[in-house]
């Protein structure tokens, strides 16, 4: 297996977006790309990352391999790469290590690191294709700010989607808060658009703690998609055009 990115920045951001939620995980490498799927330790949230082979500068995977890696260790290794350095990952069949090589574009500096692989029992969840009741596309910075703001007031947020707006509400010991975002188009700046596709109105409650973990992916993508159906986990997708995506799934809180 050998995969090369032109710039380390994307991989750095991917790892930063998921490491605090899942810790150790397996990267599944096939000829179509690298992916990981992992639940957090409490089995409330799930992360699914796909990095498509087309998104790499070069990519080769002769035999499918599952590489168990501590994401905190991977973050440490990637700290040694400059944002504009190229990154090459290499793994040979049956080897217990993965190699990272970072090269500056002027080629005057090359650094190499070897990370020990771990044995990780992977439990994959089957996620069915779902027709969601409401899909909200919005700037990822708006979601990050909304979740951070409401976290000051409560632990949970109720997200309610109606035809032309979406409302985020919370309450806690010191008071209550809500943020309402209205649909807005923008032909010259599509990344600032708020688009709501509603088949049925939805109202679901989620732990803000997890949403704040998810919005760590905001630096990867200008936009985010919230896919919701009543009595169903939320899917939060950060698309990376031509590269892949990060999807987070979160189980709702339900009334006792």
């Amino acid at each position: 297996f050998e995969a090369k990115w032109d710039h380390a920045s994307t991989l750095k951001k991917v790892i930063d977006a998921v490491k605090d939620l899942i810790g150790d995980t397996s990267w599944d490498c096939t000829n179509t790309g690298m992916s990981l799927q992992s639940m957090d330790s409490s089995h409330v949230a799930l992360v699914h990352v796909l990095l498509k082979s087309e998104g790499f500068e070069s990519y080769r995977c002769d035999r499918n391999v599952s590489m168990g890696i501590s994401l905190n260790s991977m973050a440490k290794v990637l700290k040694c790469a400059g944002n504009d350095d190229s990154v090459t990952l290499r793994h040979e069949s049956e080897s217990s290590v993965v190699n990272f090589a970072f090269e500056s574009h002027k080629e005057e500096r090359v650094s190499e690191f070897e990370l020990k692989l771990m044995n990780i029992d992977t439990e994959h969840l089957g996620i069915p294709e779902t027709e969601y009741d409401s899909i909200i596309k919005m700037p990822s910075a708006d979601l990050r700010r909304t979740c951070a703001d409401l976290s000051q007031f409560g632990d949970s947020v109720t997200i309610s989607c109606a035809k032309s707006d979406v409302r985020f509400e919370t309450s806690g010991d010191i008071g209550t808060g809500n943020v309402r975002l209205s649909a807005r188009g923008s032909s010259d700046k599509p990344e600032t658009e708020i688009a709501i596709e509603m088949i049925n109105p939805v109202s679901l409650t989620f732990a803000l703690k997890y949403l704040n973990f998810f919005t760590k992916a905001a630096p990867l993508s200008d936009t985010v998609k919230l896919c919701m159906s009543n009595n169903h986990p939320l899917c939060v997708e950060f698309p990376m055009p031509e590269v892949g995506y990060i999807r987070y799934y979160l189980a709702p809180k339900i009334d006792e």
Binding site: H124, G126, A251, K253
Partner: peptide, 14 residues
């Protein structure tokens, strides 16, 4: 107060 549901209530292991 609402209780936190588990993701495995919705998705099954494969």
């Amino acid at each position: 107060t609402p209780i936190q549901n588990d993701l495995t209530e919705y998705f099954s292991m494969v």
